[in-house]
Design a protein around this nucleic acid. Structure first.
Lengths: 222, 222
DNA sequence: CGATCACCATGAAGATTCTGATTGTCGATG
DNA sequence: CATCGACAATCAGAATCTTCATGGTGATCG
């Protein structure tokens, strides 16, 4: 696992590098956008952490240039919220962004998330799963019940996919809320129940795979 | 799970404490940095929530001092964005920071994220264990007795899993009540006995693994 | 405006706790 | 070494409390 750290401030590069190496990554550094483009094209990095404000070539322009030849995952570091323009993010296929000032552990959490997302989407792609008459195609975001396409809501897909990814593992409502709804969701536990109910309806007879663990949460049991 | 709340304003401490306890944390309080350092060094907290502006010793200096002996996760509460100085954050290994004014649920979300981030790197999915004909799968919340699925109540699972996690260790009823029932359970000692009884029934012949320690408590003996 | 979602109230199913009676254990003692 | 007393553990079941599925409501958003 090799990452490229791009920032004009050497202090930041050093700190990030230290944390990254501590997490078992190898880390190269670049001091501006031009350098970053050259290095990113010459090598296959698993991830690039890129500052926005830099001399010679800014972070967004560097991304655009890199994207012409590579689709290396990129995390953007931007100094203020409004510096990160959504338009840019969408166009350039930015994987995540972190606003400065940031805490290194937080950044590392994002790094690991992006890397594992890429990896899992690579291995899981083209591998629809079948549980009896229930076919689940995560990459295509399709679910078939006895061969018939199930039309589900976004949350149902998210919930089902998370359950299936962690099948045979007991999941608390809190865990589900955190992972499916997001850590910044301040909602009610019962919300999970409601969506489980709707998901079960969508799954017809295959609702049986979704097991209630009383006093605990739920589990997809295959 | 025990956290330390550090702030000079008692109102803030109270609010945070209330929320934290609602989430199942135990919470101690400190009114300034000096106090915080003393307490954090004396005990192993799972997390420290630390204000920046405080009399006697400010939050950052307190972190620095604590970091000399412990690497307890720390969340910083800072009054304004610019009060959180990058230098500080980097040097001190702050896990996250929240700017005042904050909403308690947001803070709690961050707290849970930090704690679970720390834990997930360690305590992940546990492999199923077998003791003769008794199979225990904690992640799946499944127990098999001679290959037959045992259908148990939540407390039975919790109790059994805690006993097994601490197998060959003598556990008092008080310890079990605190760890399995929760620190806020003010019930009778006999409650443990009752659940031990039901657990033994569920385990059939493998009840023999649960040993009574007269005048003491119980032990899972493998 | 329709789809989706979060949240709430409800009641039934299920789990937990407590009580008090019973049984078991162990050391002291005649 | 048999017995007793004191205390600890076990047990059954009734009362109480919790939890979850469900259906409905209102908010939100495209």
């Amino acid at each position: 696992m090799k990452i490229l750290i791009v920032d004009d401030e050497i202090n930041i590069r050093n700190v990030v590098k230290e944390y990254a190496e501590h997490e078992g990554f190898k880390a190269d550094e670049a001091g501006d956008g031009m350098e970053a483009v050259t290095m990113a094209k010459a090598q296959d990095y698993d991830l690039i952490i890129m500052d926005v404000m830099m001399p010679r070539l800014d972070g967004f322009s560097a991304c655009k240039e890199i994207r012409k030849t590579k689709d290396t995952p990129i995390i953007i570091l931007s100094a203020r919220d409004d510096e990160y323009d959504q338009q840019h993010g969408f166009d350039l296929g930015i994987d995540d962004y972190v606003t400065k000032p940031f805490s290194p552990p937080l950044l590392m959490a994002r790094v690991k998330a992006v890397v594992s997302r890429r990896n899992s989407s690579r291995t899981n792609v083209t591998e629809p799963m079948t549980f009896e008459g229930l076919e689940i195609n995560m990459s295509g975001r399709e679910v078939y019940v006895d061969g018939k396409r199930a039309n589900m809501t976004p949350k149902e897909y998210d919930l089902l996919f998370y359950l299936v990814k962690n099948r045979n593992i007991a999941l608390t409502r809190d865990k589900l809320l955190e992972e499916v709804w997001g850590y910044d969701f301040f909602g009610d536990d019962r919300t999970v129940d409601t969506h489980i109910k709707m998901l079960r309806n969508s799954l017809g007879e295959y609702r049986k795979f979704i097991v209630t663990l009383r006093g605990m949460g739920y589990k997809f049991e295959a």
